[in-house]
């Protein structure tokens, strides 16, 4: 029975082998065959992700990264934090129990690129926002082992002394708009001032941030100092918003379960 089932495969292969024997004399036939065979799968798996609507949930309250948070994200990438930290809570019970509601596609809708990660040397960070204080984050980044003995995370003390470069922020936001993040003109033009304002609550710049990004935006001395704007400010601002861009995951999962 089984052998009969396999017959068509065998016959197909026989044909294939003969065709092959002739085709392998022509480098372009070979090249064309390779391109064809290797294109099908990728196309079928990637293209529909753009056309099937339910791929990315609708979250009306989804907000954008502020320029300071985006700058922090760029530092997160620069330092390679994603090599140890995932930002993707899988739909598995133990992950939901440990880290909170599983991650939804919409949460990384504006993440160019996504930072889901592939290794958890350290814990998942998808919902780490507001899990700790700014002060804790700063001190942890300066010296992780001072707070968590036995941690293998590197120190990033230099971030406290590194002044944040804000001049390129309008360009960065504009590039993000070019790839599909809906930043408005005012947000792009004021990007540098907004970055400053978000970390310097008692300045006029801060008002602009609230106006352009909403009253809910965290506007604080993230690095605990009022003087200059540092890379630490940006990175902590980013960490503190992780998981806070939309309330949808908690709402969905509250409605369905617990």
């Amino acid at each position: 029975m089984f052998r009969k089932l396999l017959k068509p495969f065998a016959r197909f292969f026989e044909l294939h082998a003969r065709t092959h024997y002739r085709a392998e004399r022509h480098s372009f036939a070979l090249a064309a065959g390779i391109i064809l065979a290797a294109s099908v799968g990728g196309f079928i798996e990637i293209a529909p992700l753009f056309t099937i609507d339910e791929t990315v949930e609708a979250a009306p309250d989804m907000r954008l990264y502020t320029p300071l948070e985006q700058a922090g994200r760029d530092i997160y990438i620069r330092e390679g934090c994603y090599a140890c930290h995932s930002q993707m809570i899988r739909s598995l019970q133990d992950e939901v129990d440990r880290y909170g509601p599983y991650s939804l596609a919409v949460e990384s809708q504006y993440d160019h690129p996504m930072l889901w990660g592939s290794k958890r040397t350290g814990p998942d960070l998808a919902r780490v926002g507001e899990k700790y204080s700014d002060d804790w984050q700063v001190r942890h980044l300066v010296d992780p082992r001072a707070l968590v003995p036995g941690s293998v995370m590197p120190q990033y003390a230099f971030l406290l002394d590194a002044e944040l470069e804000t001049g390129s922020l309008p360009d960065r936001l504009a590039a993000l708009r070019a790839v599909g993040v809906p930043y408005g003109d005012a947000q792009i033009v004021n990007a540098a001032a907004d970055a400053r304002g978000q970390a310097l609550p008692d300045t006029d710049w801060a008002d602009g941030v609230a106006e352009r990004y909403g009253e809910e935006t965290n506007i604080r001395h993230f690095d605990g100092r009022s003087g200059e704007l540092t890379e630490m400010d940006a990175l902590v601002a980013y960490l503190q918003i992780l998981g806070g861009l939309t309330d949808l995951p908690a709402e969905i999962q509250a409605a369905r379960g617990d």
Partner: peptide, 9 residues
């Protein structure tokens, strides 16, 4: 910045 974001990326 990557042309793709989120799931597609």
């Amino acid at each position: 910045y990557s042309a793709f974001a989120g799931v597609q990326d």
